[in-house]
């Protein structure tokens, strides 16, 4: 097991390198250089060139890429922001907890709701409740997050004034952003749980359990649920990834000082070090969560555990 975890951790390195390379390339293909960006287009050409040299921007593409990766690996230095000239890492660290809190809350709540309702739907297949939830899940899965966020904001914050419009001052301010991402996240989990659960309760071993005289509740929770859980856990992990990405939209809509808003402003200002570092951070989070998911597999399914050598 320890060997497996170590192997997986090592495997994240190429993934992260690939991610950096991709984002680095894309950012290099866009026009503009840090000197012009900071000093403005009207500045003297030699000042701009001097500043560019300071950022190492005068060097060729691969040299810049390897310098960047080298700095991270050797000095844990993510560079400094073109905009504030402050180390990027500090800014990320200040904002990251907000994003993490939002993403975790959304993931936990949407997984719990989605899984539970999915099981209920599957057990009561073709009932009114099942059809109703299917329709609702479709509606929320299709609804764009920013639109849903704005509508919720309009209703609960502007009209009814029950909740704050934006920012993150107190716990009430978490409600709207979390609800926005939970609604679409839970919809996906619900559909997936329902279908895997339906498949599981048609399995022979479920009939074996019934033939033993097990009650319906035992059959569902003891026999079916654990077997149906594997794909569902994956969807929890994917849900976390989605809410990390989704925070970009939700944080923008609700003006939350998190990684999402940071990355959006950074892209707009072509603040390459910030964009790179934010992306890297989000990828690391995603890789770790997927690793946790894979380890959870082993605890649920002995067949998976046997393979994890």
């Amino acid at each position: 097991m320890t060997r497996y975890v170590l192997k997986r951790l090592l495997l994240t390195i190429p993934v992260l390198l690939g991610t950096i390379f991709l984002v680095f390339t894309i950012m290099s293909l866009t026009p503009g250089d840090p000197g012009t960006l900071i000093l403005g287009a009207t500045a003297k050409a030699e000042d701009i060139a001097k500043l560019n040299a300071e950022f190492g921007y005068d060097q060729p593409f691969f040299a810049r890429f390897f310098n960047y990766v080298g700095d991270i690996v050797l000095h844990f230095d993510f560079g400094e922001s073109y905009r504030t000239r402050a180390p990027v890492f500090d800014e990320i660290l200040a904002r990251f907890p907000n994003t993490l809190r939002l993403a975790l809350l959304s993931m936990v709540i949407s997984s719990a709701i989605g899984t539970f309702l999915g099981i209920y739907s599957a057990v009561k297949q073709y009932s009114f409740v099942d059809s109703f939830m299917t329709v609702m899940a479709m509606v929320f899965a299709c609804m764009p997050g920013f639109w849903l966020g704005l509508m919720l904001m309009l209703l609960f914050a502007v009209r009814l004034q029950w909740l704050p419009v934006s920012g993150l001052e107190n716990w009430q301010s978490y409600i709207l952003p979390v609800v926005t991402s939970v609604l679409s996240g839970a919809a996906g989990t619900l559909r997936l749980t329902r279908s895997t659960m339906l498949e599981t309760i048609r399995q022979d071993y479920i009939r074996t359990a019934r033939a033993k005289g097990a009650s319906e509740r035992t059959v569902i929770w003891r026999h079916a649920f654990k077997n149906a859980l594997l794909p569902v856990i994956t969807s929890w992990g994917m849900g976390f990834g989605a809410s990390l990405g989704g925070t970009i939209i939700i944080e923008t809509v609700f003006a939350i000082p998190g990684l999402g808003t940071l990355i959006v402003t950074a892209i707009r200002q072509k603040d390459v070090p910030t964009v790179l570092a934010c992306t890297l951070f989000l990828s690391v989070m995603f890789c770790l969560i997927m690793l946790v998911v894979d380890i959870l597999y082993a605890f649920i399914d002995p067949r998976v555990k046997a393979k994890m050598k």
Binding site: D204, Y205, A211, P302
Partner: peptide
């Protein structure tokens, strides 16, 4: 299970894998 019990056709799938 107590008075009447049944042996199912396919032992590969009749047992709960977890």
């Amino acid at each position: 299970g107590e008075k009447i019990s049944m042996i199912f056709q396919d032992p590969m799938t009749a047992l709960n894998p977890v």
